[in-house]
Nucleic acid binder design. Structure first.
Lengths: 212, 212
DNA sequence: CCCCTCTCGTGATTGTTTTAACAGGAAAAA
DNA sequence: TTTTTCCTGTTAAAACAATCACGAGAGGGG
């Protein structure tokens, strides 16, 4: 299996394949062709075949794709069930909301601890996750082999937290702040969710749509 | 000014330009060249010049771009200050969290009402936004000329809410559910934020990074 | 067993996006 | 004023991505 380079757009589509295939499985559908899957996802059959071909090709001529097999392959590509170790930094509104609502487990992430600087929260336990003091963070990451940090601090604390995380040897950051994070010369992976950018895009489409 | 077609990627970058330019303005920087802006945003100067050229070109040879002018142009392209009228559907955890934390006003959106089916919430007031019964939604949208709906229902209620919104004449939906929404033959604009897809992408990069 | 249908994987083609190169004109310096 | 420097907008080239077209091989019916 050769993997010279997987394009950004292909990676962007993989989680959506996983979601769709999981739904198909729940609906009790065992096999599907690129054409049917394409109709469902509004993609061309060609693109679907080529996307999976990047990773080796999991289909069979004259038959299509086995839904379970394909789902498992996609899950494996995305690293689900790898049991990535995780911490959360910043237990403000967004942080707490994630702790309470988001099902990290089902995507293969284990949330070990949350960190904050506010002393009224430290020592508490939010949905089974202990809240610790930020000063312990670097050690905690190193000793527990933490792979990923959810960054949900306020603007002021973001870059400082990033520096500490990198010092502790973090490998990836899931960024919910509106900041432009600077990873220095580290090769840390940063994946951001920017609410405001998404809403502004919507504003653009609204301003420029036919019925504007 | 001709606008044959603005590519998706260009639109994707516009909100980031707005954010960066706003920061520059706060820092008291009045002029900037495509080279300096590119260094700051990790984009090539060429790309920046070409992006702005799509909309007419706002710079001056030998000088660069005036930060305030450029920021205002980008804001105008994105429709900030158009005063889009908005409602929120589904006052669960995510919905409430948005109501309490997100500064809709500063991006040019006016939140007029929230809707839910749970009777214990109806009649309440969250951060100055009244919570109404879903049965009133279609009328409310029509009578108040609502442009956008934030969709933060649970999975079960999502498609039903979409149908009602479209019936009321909504023009855009900011989707926080994990569902594949079907707009039927309506030309409603859908902009989604999928937490899980973002996290799964992070998982991919983590699984396939050098230090994996 | 043979034939027909179905559908994948792949190589060729077309289309799109990014990067590079440059002509022209403003700013700044001499 | 003249010259030099700087930097845009635009055109051309390169890189990248999506689509098309087809050979090959499995499934299924007769």
């Amino acid at each position: 299996m050769k993997k010279p380079y997987i394009s950004k757009n292909v990676i962007q589509r993989m989680p959506r394949y996983l979601r769709t295939l999981t739904e198909l499985q729940k609906e009790g559908i065992h096999r599907i062709s690129s054409g049917e899957l394409g109709a469902r996802m509004r993609l061309t059959p060609s693109q679907i075949r080529q996307d999976f071909a990047c990773f080796g090709g999991f289909g069979q001529q004259g038959y299509g794709y086995n839904v379970k097999t394909l789902r498992d392959e996609v899950a494996s590509i995305l690293g689900v069930n790898r049991g990535f170790q995780m911490v959360l930094v910043g237990t403000g509104k967004i942080g707490q909301s994630l702790l309470e609502n988001f099902d990290f487990e089902s995507y293969g992430f284990k949330l070990r601890a949350a960190f904050d600087i506010r002393h009224d929260l430290i020592g508490e336990n939010i949905c089974g996750v202990p809240v610790l003091d930020c000063s312990e963070m670097e050690d905690f990451i190193r000793s527990n082999g933490i792979h990923v940090a959810v960054l949900s601090t306020n603007r002021a604390g973001a870059q400082r937290a990033v520096d500490t995380l990198i010092a502790g040897g973090i490998r990836a950051i899931w960024n919910f702040t509106e900041c432009e994070l600077s990873p220095g010369d580290s090769d840390v992976i940063i994946e951001s969710i920017h609410f405001s950018e998404s809403l502004l895009r919507l504003g653009y489409h609204l301003s420029n749509s036919a019925s504007a």
